[in-house]
């Protein structure tokens, strides 16, 4: 039982670390397109890892209700499909209205 709790803590800490790194990238990067790189990838995986850890915890401790684990796994699948699509939609809208990407050597926008 202690091993499963350790693995769940590892997943939750990893998810927290990736979400934090995504927010730091949002502040540090110099252009809109690079900021979307940081948040669209790291935020998705951070939330996915947190929910994966909680699915494991539920399967071990509350193992009589199986439907809740199925519901949470459907939520994780939905996040992995929906967040990249929303990121792509924002990026396409910015590209079509003429926002120019940043090159090495320009100033910060």
């Amino acid at each position: 039982m202690v091993i499963i709790d350790g693995i769940v803590t590892l997943f939750l800490a990893g998810g927290l670390f990736f979400t934090f790194v995504g927010s730091i990238g949002l502040l540090r990067f110099p252009d809109f397109y690079t900021r979307l790189h940081a948040t669209g990838k790291c935020d998705t995986l951070g939330a996915g890892l947190i929910i994966l850890g909680l699915i494991l915890y539920h399967l071990v401790h509350y193992s009589e209700s199986f439907l809740v684990a199925a519901k949470l796994s459907f939520l994780m699948l939905f996040i992995f499909i929906a967040n990249p699509t929303a990121t792509h939609a924002i990026m396409k809208a910015a590209y079509q209205t003429g926002l120019v990407p940043w090159k090495l050597g320009d100033e910060r926008k």
């Binding site: 979400t19 995504g22 949002l26 979307l36 948040t39 998705t44 951070g46 947190i50």
Partner: peptide, 12 residues
């Protein structure tokens, strides 16, 4: 983009 990030963190 910021609203999208806040929404994803709210789910977790």
């Amino acid at each position: 983009a910021a609203v999208n990030v806040i929404g994803t963190k709210t789910i977790a």
